[in-house]
Design a protein around this nucleic acid. Structure first.
Length: 773
DNA sequence: TGACCGCGTCTTTTT
DNA sequence: GACGCGGTCA
């Protein structure tokens, strides 16, 4: 056969691969070999004679693009695969926007603002407009602007759209249109685009410059889109316009795994694909190759509770496998111990390697307890998400220097480093600088270049400091095409004193900062080497910045082996593990309390749970805790409503527990005691307790010691006269619990939680404490 | 101006 | 618990 690789596909997969006559939609159930279909389809197109640089393949993450590319390279060879247009929407279209810069009003080297930058700018604008940031919450404003952009509503359209205005009025933020307007012009002034701009500006480019649209329609003879269920309107329209000329488009996705609506993704894009392309062929991949029957069936029974979906029957031909084990524990700490213990067992008794195991959770903040439990048992793990390498302060600082050198209009970068390391330019001065720039409608850098001309109201000393800063940046900027990225980066790091800043003391923080900065330099070095090896000319600092601004730490995965993976369910999309722990299956956590008010959001949470379960190949273990320490407080919770959505035939539920509703315990006066009662209650189910029992019940410390919470690894005193976990009585504050003890200037100090009176920090030699037994 | 402290807030997911 | 903010003090 001409295409031997097609033999590796099943019937429906092969149909999907070889259909290339017009638009097609591939509904790819979880684990149905979606990536395989995409890679083989591209390989097929290439084997059929298409040139690689006429194929556009859009993925959701850089990592997915990279992986797909290397798999294609294995079939057709590296020097063919490398010419494919393959990447995320954001990276592909930022490239196009740079190439078409003379049409966009931005420069070729525009900066990309990450969400922290854009939030900071929004904050600044709110402040300048003298609005109340309790009403105009930066986060809220940011998401509304983002929503507007994703729906291609420009500031002008925003202000004149009566529906939008009504909505803003209803949300009590009527001035949002002005913030949006100013935000846009400030980004423009700074020659910066945020993530959403990359899509919005691409659309504007294609709308305002039909010649540019035609050019790319011609270039992209075949378009493939992965994870189509997670595209938003802006992405939908880009794809639609590009495909208009030839209709050679293939989108792949699974409506059941649409989990990014908070980012503007619109599940209707996939549900309505047939409306956009009436002639489209639909292929369904329904055989799941990943998971056991029990896992697939459990997931099916769950997703069946959703109403908005494309009908399909996912089935598995693998063995029945284990039931999904549902476990309840008392506290989040116990949940961590439960996970760690079971990983140990799986590792020792069942021969699962650590790399076969993942722990998935709804929110990043849940990783902490799991992490601690694993560390205690010496189980190697790797956490994804949380703050990435590029979000660390020292890295952001260094990159801000790079950014400012590459683009002196980058005001967010300037704000970050104008006084770092400290050079005597304080908030007041910075405020004046920005105010003057606004007053004259120019950029901050223009003001710095002519402080007298713009009447910057600062004294001579401050002006000199500003001029000095300006000259430093200018001197590096002059070298931007003289030195390669690595040489210039080294110069900047050494010359500006950011590195010596970390040499001030040998604290662990500073050591880790040094390491991170070295790590960054190493990465830049590799970047230059790579470019040089390929004979590419774009090895300057601006080129480096263009490349990294869209990277996330998933993409810089070193793939360390034999570690347990810890990540959010979102981050796990597209991955698979032999064993999956899903932790924190509780109401008010999963589903997230933000998404329970309407059916649409709730269905997305359910899909998220579906994604979590379908990551598992062989075992899936779900747990929930009755109490969880969150936001500095112990909260009580009920099992997630989603547990009831799974057909019980596929679950292994503990006998003494039911996942049906239980009356919620309200910890109105002492959660800790409530918890103790609950444990007590569970041990002796015949004894019940009444709520009116509000009198304080002293609990013996030794009993608390059994609680993981009583773990006193944090105690810094050798022999504290008041043990951590003990209950004490204070003449004024009443009864409290000792949280922590330490020695301060030779005096014993204790952190004591007095419930409603708050947590107090007391010196024991003054506080007369009575220890309760 | 900068360091520090105490207070209140707020918490989803990410290109 | 983490962070940001505002106020205070040197």
């Amino acid at each position: 056969m001409e295409f031997p690789f097609l033999d590796e596909l099943n019937d429906s997969q092969r149909q999907a691969v070889i259909y290339t006559d017009g638009p097609s939609l591939v509904i790819a159930g979880a684990g149905s070999g979606k990536t395989r279909v995409l890679t083989y389809k591209i390989a097929y197109l290439l084997k059929m004679g298409m040139r690689p640089n006429t194929i556009l393949a859009l993925t959701f993450t850089n990592k997915a693009a990279k992986e797909m590319k290397s798999r294609i390279a294995q079939i057709v060879g590296e020097n063919v695969a490398r010419y494919l247009w393959m990447g995320t929407f954001h990276s592909i279209f930022s490239r196009i926007l740079r190439a078409e810069s003379e049409k966009t009003g931005y420069s070729k080297n525009f900066t990309i603002y990450d969400s922290a930058d854009s939030k900071s700018l929004i904050k600044a604008i709110i402040k300048e407009m003298k609005l109340d940031d309790k009403v105009y919450k930066p986060g809220l404003i940011q998401s509304r602007i983002s929503f507007a952009k994703n729906n291609l509503i420009t500031p002008q359209a925003y202000a004149s759209d009566s529906d939008v205005q009504k909505s803003d009025l209803y949300a009590k933020v009527p001035l949002l249109k002005e913030i949006y307007q100013i935000y846009s012009s400030r980004c423009k002034q700074a020659d910066a685009m945020d993530f959403d701009d990359l899509l919005l500006q691409t659309n504007l480019l294609f709308r305002n410059h039909p010649d540019a649209l035609q050019k790319y329609q011609h270039i992209f003879q075949f378009i493939l889109v992965d994870e189509y269920q997670d595209t938003n309107f802006a992405q939908y329209l880009i794809v639609k316009k590009l495909a208009e000329a030839h209709k050679k488009i293939c989108v792949v996705g699974d409506d059941a795994q649409s989990i990014y609506s908070f980012r503007g993704a619109n599940i209707d894009n996939i549900l309505q694909f047939k409306n956009t392309y009436p002639e489209a062929k639909v292929f369904k991949l329904e055989r799941n190759y990943r998971s056991t029957k029990n896992i697939v069936n459990a997931a099916n029974s769950l997703i069946d509770k959703n109403s908005a979906q494309i009908k399909k029957t996912i089935f598995s031909e693998k063995e029945t496998g284990e039931l999904i084990k549902v476990t309840n524990v008392f506290t989040d700490l116990e949940e961590g111990m439960y996970v760690a213990d079971n990983i140990k067992l799986l590792n020792k008794k069942e021969n699962y390697g650590h790399q076969d195991i993942a722990v998935l959770y709804r929110t990043n903040s849940q990783s902490r307890v799991i992490e601690e439990a694993l560390r205690k048992q010496n189980i190697p793990y790797r956490i994804y998400g949380g703050l990435s390498f590029y979000q660390r302060k020292e890295i952001k600082d260094v990159i801000a220097y790079f950014r400012l050198v590459a683009n002196r209009n980058d005001e967010e970068a300037l704000k970050r480093i104008i006084n770092y390391p400290a050079r005597g330019i304080g908030d007041t001065t910075v405020g004046k600088l920005f105010a003057t720039a606004q007053l004259h409608g120019v950029g901050v850098w223009d003001v710095l270049n002519d402080m007298l001309g713009y009447n910057l109201p600062v004294n001579a000393g401050t002006a000199a400091k500003l001029a000095n800063f300006r000259d430093i940046i200018d001197s590096y900027a002059a070298l931007i095409t003289e030195l390669n990225a690595y040489e210039l980066a080294q110069n900047i790091i050494k010359g500006t004193g950011i590195l010596s800043e970390t040499f001030l003391d040998r604290s662990p923080e500073n050591l880790s900062k040094q390491e991170n900065i070295q790590e960054l330099l190493k990465a830049i070095h590799e970047f230059c080497d790579e470019k040089e090896k390929n004979g590419e000319a774009n090895l300057y600092l601006s080129d480096y910045l263009a490349e990294i601004s869209l990277l996330t730490d998933q993409d810089t995965d070193k793939g360390e082996s034999n570690r347990v993976t810890l990540m959010t369910v979102h981050a796990a999309k597209g991955l698979e593990f032999k064993v999956v722990f899903i932790v924190g299956m509780e109401e008010e956590l999963f589903p997230s309390p933000f998404n329970v008010d309407n059916e649409r959001d709730l269905e997305e949470e359910r899909r998220l749970f579906y994604v979590a379960i379908t990551r598992a190949e062989e075992r899936c273990l779900i747990s929930y805790a009755r109490s969880r320490f969150r936001n500095g407080k112990t909260n009580f919770s009920n099992p997630s409503r989603f547990l009831k959505d799974i057909d019980e035939r596929y679950l292994d539920i503990p006998k003494d527990e039911t996942i049906l509703d239980k009356p919620k315990l309200t910890g109105n006066w002492d959660d800790e005691v409530n918890l103790e009662r609950m444990r007590f209650n569970k041990q002796q189910p015949t004894i019940s307790f009444q709520k009116e029992e509000t009198e304080y019940i002293p609990v013996r410390p030794k009993r608390l010691a059994k609680l993981p919470k009583g773990d006193n690894s944090k105690v810094t005193t050798q022999n504290p006269s008041v043990p951590v976990g003990a209950f004490v009585k204070h003449s004024i504050f009443g009864i409290g619990k000792v949280l922590e003890t330490s020695i301060v200037n030779g005096n014993e100090k204790a952190e004591i939680d007095f419930g409603e009176k708050g947590v107090k920090s007391l010196l024991l030699k003054f506080a007369k404490l009575e220890i309760l037994q």
